[in-house]
């Protein structure tokens, strides 16, 4: 059994708005092992980014527990110890706004070194070492974010995240704003430094094809709830939850081999409802093709159908292991 880096138990994050309470993250539980990439997939409004932000402490959680390397985390980012911030980092979705336009790339990457008092005698060399690691030219240290392309900015954001030598990085849609050729470069860089630095990732995306190539385990989120968690290969070969099937069959693919892999066509219908009015019972039942009478009344629990394959659906209620 490998070492557990992060465990989230019944994590809850509600936002109060004028329209009502938004149940952004509703009793989400999962764990991430050392060196693993755990993927969270879902449509917009499913709460996947909120989950990451809550784990990182940008939003203080409403309820539930977060354990990092066995230590319980409490409260928001400001009340957490400095050593923890060194160990957990995050890369944001929009590379444009994640770098301060008034700072040079050198200053941006140097900041974590300064804050955590690392390499105090040879910071400049360390910054160049990090740039080399992500494959950026060294003269970038004097450049400013506006002189860079989107992909390069994202690589700088990744450099900043790895500068404090963390063991865990949350990646919130790191490539969704980029082109496919740039995406390939970012993803490969991420996977390479993961091996080199023995990192664990929480990888968030809406792109299932990308997830297939990155994650070791995948969780599907819908309206703040985890509906299915499984190892990646099994997840795509044998999806169980009707929502997962619908998602996979909606993915546009370009080769015949991929076409074969898709489950039989499930026509997608309906839209994700507002998280203020979550449907009663199973949240997915109004869009579900296999909806039964009980689905609108009883909310299913997460059950382990096969080893390490969890699903939250009334269809599998009898197959619990």
């Amino acid at each position: 059994m490998s070492e557990e880096i992060l465990r989230v138990k019944d994590l809850i994050k509600f936002f109060k708005t004028t329209q009502g309470v938004v149940r952004a993250v509703d009793r989400v539980s999962f764990s991430i092992q050392k060196g693993e990439t755990f993927g969270l997939v879902g449509e917009s409004g499913s709460g996947k980014s909120t989950t990451a932000f809550t784990i990182m402490g940008v939003y203080p959680p409403t309820g539930g527990e977060i354990f990092f390397k066995g230590v319980k985390l409490t409260g928001g980012v400001k009340s957490r110890p400095l050593s923890l911030k060194k160990d957990m980092q995050m890369v944001f979705q929009d590379p444009g706004s994640s770098l301060n336009p008034r700072h040079s790339i050198g200053q941006i990457i140097e900041l974590p070194l300064k804050v955590h008092k690392l390499y105090e005698n040879n910071r400049k060399e360390r910054v160049e070492e990090i740039l080399k690691m992500v494959g950026l030219p060294l003269d970038f240290t004097r450049r400013y974010p506006r002189q860079l392309g989107g992909g390069e900015k994202q690589l700088v954001a990744i450099s900043r995240a790895i500068a404090s030598e963390p063991s865990f990085i949350a990646l919130d849609e790191p490539t969704s704003a980029l082109d496919v050729s740039m995406q390939a470069k970012i993803i490969n860089t991420l996977l390479r430094i993961q091996k080199e630095l023995d990192l664990s990732y929480l990888f968030i995306t809406h792109n299932l094809s990308l997830m297939r190539n990155v994650a070791t385990r995948v969780g599907i989120m819908y309206l703040g709830k985890l509906l299915e968690v499984a190892p990646t290969s099994e997840f795509f070969i044998k999806p169980l939850h009707p929502y997962t099937k619908m998602l996979i069959s909606s993915i546009p693919v370009i080769t015949k081999e991929e076409e074969k892999l898709k489950p039989e066509r499930i026509i997608s219908r309906g839209e994700i409802p507002s998280p203020v009015n979550v449907p009663p019972g199973c949240a997915f039942h109004p869009r579900c093709v296999e909806c039964q009478e009980m689905c609108s009344k009883t909310e299913p629990e997460m059950i382990e159908v096969e080893e390490n394959h969890y699903v939250r659906c009334n269809l599998y209620i009898d197959q619990s292991k």
């Binding site: 990182m56 402490g57 940008v58 980012v77 400001k78 400095l82 911030k85 060194k86 957990m88 980092q89 995050m90 944001f92 979705q93 929009d94 706004s97 994640s98 770098l99 301060n100 900041l111 974590p112 804050v115 955590h116 954001a157 900043r160 404090s164």
Partner: peptide, 11 residues
């Protein structure tokens, strides 16, 4: 903005 949040997360 993300860059402010990033520096908070850095500590």
């Amino acid at each position: 903005e993300y860059f402010v949040q990033a520096s908070e997360l850095i500590g």
